[in-house]
Write a protein that binds this DNA or RNA. Structure first.
Lengths: 230, 230
DNA sequence: AAACCATTGTGAGATATATCCCGTATAATC
DNA sequence: GATTATACGGGATATATCTCACAATGGTTT
């Protein structure tokens, strides 16, 4: 990773939230903001490490993960362009990352000084309101995952995950998974072997096609049905 | 349920967030705020219903639940005094409750007009910042539940839930469960029968004692160990 | 090209827990 | 107080999925 530029005012990828900032405020943001690039596989920040930054994904896909029972990884979600990560750190006395973030494609990430971000929130209620909006989009997603993961059997969880990739993450139909089977397993809380077997079953029944990491959803209706009925 | 009073300025239970409001702003809040009481078991608001209010729990315990696969209930969490419910509705174009809220003890609830709440957020960044704080306390909790529920076996999930009640909800040791076995089951995503069996097992091994709905945690260390190791 | 490591596919046995069952106990309603 | 509905306890069977083991493949580095 290496630093690139430092201009928020001219940034051509302003978030909804940043769009409501005044020029003066954009200047403040710029003060505490620096952009870095990460290669596929690189760690952006680590669970438990002290956090003095909030990060913004300018480009790329990032997995958020957390150590669970017996130190097993659990992937909370795949975030992408336009997401703020680590706003949690504003809150706590202990400024520690609650999860790790790892680039799963080459990515551009802005690091925003946490004090700076906090000041902007205090100053500008409209900015804060926008930030709250993005937070809740996330939260809805976590509710759904919680319900789905707890109530569903594997078929349903995997179907759900495939549709999540297709509709919320990559938003295209043949999509590149960018994850290993082991990672998919830690996304739905199962074993690598089960993911293998199930994906094969989905292939055999003509619901999806796989070629390397490229997945094509052939029968979206069927998948939706499995997602709903389990 | 019946309406009681309408004064936020004099409210003796101001949230951290409301504490930062000016007198003028408190007046605005009061305009759009009304307090109601609910009896144990009464529905406060229903998933999917149009929502023009954000609610604040002044007193009591409330379960938040959501319909999942095959219309089975899933309990997202138990909220209590001091929590805001339904801030999500600020966000969406579709103002629909994302979950149902039901009083599990007699409760006092303030209904705050959503437009009014939104205006305060816009006006006062400090207020917004406090609100963001409370949102993230919740989110942390959901992360933990997600990881725990997905990776753990039943023993771990139940241990986790018991400690959740003891440390985060009721914050006392012999505590009143206020939930049926069926509800506990839908909290950890299992069947009523399994909850029965497991609680009995915990009793037989001297980890807890139960008398009606009153639960006493006898061996907190052991329970913590089960929570961690599964 | 060879050697290496990470990733994957697949089989067989072990196991946790869901489901179905019915009898009982408790709480709610008239 | 009688009746009804809801909550609870516990046994037997079925099944989804984990685990372990080993082979195969792919990608990367020297």
């Amino acid at each position: 990773m290496n630093s690139v530029e430092r201009s928020c005012t001219d940034c051509n990828l302003k978030s909804n939230a940043v769009a409501v900032l005044s020029d003066k405020e954009l200047g403040m943001l710029e003060e505490g903001c620096s952009k870095l690039t990460f290669k596929k596989g690189e760690l952006i920040f680590k669970e438990g490490a002290p956090a003095s930054y909030i990060t913004f994904i300018r480009d790329g896909f990032v997995k958020l993960s957390k150590k669970g029972v017996g130190n097993r990884d659990f992937i909370l979600s795949i975030s992408k362009k336009g997401a703020y990560l680590g706003i949690q750190n504003l809150n706590r006395k202990s400024h520690e990352n609650y999860f790790s973030a790892t680039a799963i494609t080459n990515s551009e990430i802005c690091f925003i000084n946490i004090g700076c971000f906090g000041k902007l929130l205090q100053r500008n209620g409209a900015f804060a309101t926008e930030v709250i909006s993005t937070i809740f989009d996330d939260e809805m997603h976590y509710f759904d995952r919680l319900v789905n993961n707890v109530q569903q059997h594997l078929h349903g969880r995997l179907a759900n995950t495939l549709l999540y990739f297709r509709n919320d993450v990559y938003i295209e139909n043949p999509f590149n998974l960018n994850l290993t089977k082991t990672e998919v397993a830690s996304l739905i809380g199962t074993s690598r072997e089960s993911v293998s077997r199930l994906l094969k079953e989905f292939q055999d029944t003509g619901i999806i096609a796989m070629e390397r990491k490229k997945i094509t959803i052939l029968d979206e209706e069927k998948l939706e049905e499995i997602k709903l009925k389990g």
